[in-house]
């Protein structure tokens, strides 16, 4: 059955696009950041999905029988790094939003543009 083989990838595509929509279309800066982290999470899911092997177990030797099939460890390593990158970006983005709020009194992009233009 085709959809059983591929629905993981479709969920990835849908989540990715919900996140991207959040970043582009939303005018609230915190909302944009939430969209951004959703967007990144979708990619994490994509990588982990492709590493899964049918009937495999977590790639730890000796947890169960040694004859086990292991899922691919490499995407997991990459995503561990990517998660860290994601939280770093979020923290930095939030600190900028805090400063924007202090400087402009708002975190809505439209209000900020107006205040910039009024200068």
């Amino acid at each position: 059955m085709l959809w059983v083989e591929l629905y993981h990838y479709w969920v990835f595509a849908i989540l990715l696009m919900i996140g991207l929509f959040g970043v582009i279309a939303k005018r609230n800066l915190v909302k944009k950041l939430v969209g951004l982290s959703l967007f990144q999470s979708a990619v994490f899911l994509f990588y982990i999905t492709m590493g899964k092997v049918d009937g495999g177990t977590a790639p730890i030797v000796g947890m169960t029988d040694s004859t086990d099939v292991f899922s691919n460890p490499l995407p997991q390593v990459l995503i561990l790094t990517a998660i860290v990158v994601g939280i770093s970006t979020t923290a930095l983005g939030l600190s900028i939003v805090v400063r924007i709020k202090e400087a402009y009194g708002s975190i809505e992009e439209d209000v900020i543009h107006e205040k910039d233009r009024a200068e």
Partner: peptide, 17 residues
């Protein structure tokens, strides 16, 4: 992630995300 056999990633995502 845990269902997909990525225990390390699941632990990290839970702690961080």
């Amino acid at each position: 992630f845990l269902l997909l056999d990525a225990a390390d990633v699941a632990l990290t995502e839970a702690a961080v995300g």
